[in-house]
Computed example of a mutant assay.
Amino acid sequence: MSKETIYYGPNADENKKKLSKVQDVTSLALGVGAGILAPEPVYGFLFYVIGYTVSNIAFYITCCEGLQGRAGQFYKSPVKEIFVDNLLHNIPEYIMMWCLVYALVK
Score class of each variant (00 low, 15 high):
residue 43 Y to G: 08
residue 93 E to N: 14
residue 44 G to P: 06
residue 15 N to L: 04
residue 2 S to E: 13
residue 46 L to E: 06
residue 26 T to C: 15
residue 46 L to M: 13
residue 72 G to S: 05
residue 41 P to Y: 06
residue 4 E to K: 03
residue 15 N to S: 10
residue 67 L to E: 01
residue 44 G to S: 12
residue 101 V to P: 05
residue 71 A to D: 09
residue 95 I to H: 03
residue 54 V to P: 02
residue 25 V to K: 04
residue 80 K to I: 11
residue 80 K to T: 08
residue 42 V to I: 15
residue 87 L to Q: 11
residue 49 V to I: 15
residue 102 Y to W: 14
residue 29 A to S: 10
residue 8 Y to T: 10
residue 26 T to W: 01
residue 68 Q to S: 13
residue 91 I to M: 11
residue 30 L to S: 01
residue 69 G to D: 09
residue 84 V to L: 15
residue 96 M to G: 12
residue 26 T to G: 12
residue 71 A to L: 04
residue 16 K to M: 11
residue 56 N to M: 03
residue 82 I to V: 13
residue 105 V to R: 15
residue 74 F to C: 02
residue 96 M to S: 10
residue 32 V to N: 07
residue 97 M to E: 04
residue 85 D to G: 03
residue 60 Y to C: 08
residue 25 V to A: 07
residue 50 I to K: 05
residue 98 W to R: 09
residue 95 I to E: 05
residue 8 Y to R: 11
residue 51 G to S: 06
residue 38 A to H: 08
residue 85 D to M: 07
residue 73 Q to H: 10
residue 33 G to H: 01
residue 6 I to G: 01
residue 76 K to W: 01
residue 54 V to Q: 02
residue 98 W to H: 04
residue 61 I to E: 06
residue 97 M to I: 00
residue 81 E to R: 05
residue 18 K to Q: 06
residue 29 A to N: 06
residue 104 L to P: 06
residue 55 S to D: 00
residue 24 D to L: 14
residue 82 I to K: 00
residue 29 A to G: 05
residue 17 K to I: 13
residue 51 G to M: 06
residue 99 C to M: 14
residue 101 V to S: 05
residue 83 F to P: 07
residue 90 N to Q: 10
residue 94 Y to R: 06
residue 43 Y to I: 05
residue 24 D to V: 05
residue 17 K to F: 13
residue 76 K to A: 11
residue 2 S to F: 03
residue 62 T to W: 06
residue 16 K to R: 13
residue 99 C to K: 05
residue 63 C to R: 10
residue 69 G to W: 02
residue 21 K to S: 14
residue 4 E to H: 05
residue 102 Y to E: 11
residue 49 V to N: 03
residue 98 W to L: 13
residue 72 G to E: 12
residue 8 Y to H: 15
residue 100 L to G: 01
residue 104 L to Y: 13
residue 66 G to I: 01
residue 103 A to C: 10
residue 86 N to D: 14
residue 92 P to A: 11
residue 87 L to N: 01
residue 55 S to N: 09
residue 25 V to R: 07
residue 25 V to D: 00
residue 94 Y to P: 01
residue 50 I to E: 02
residue 89 H to W: 14
residue 14 E to F: 14
residue 53 T to W: 00
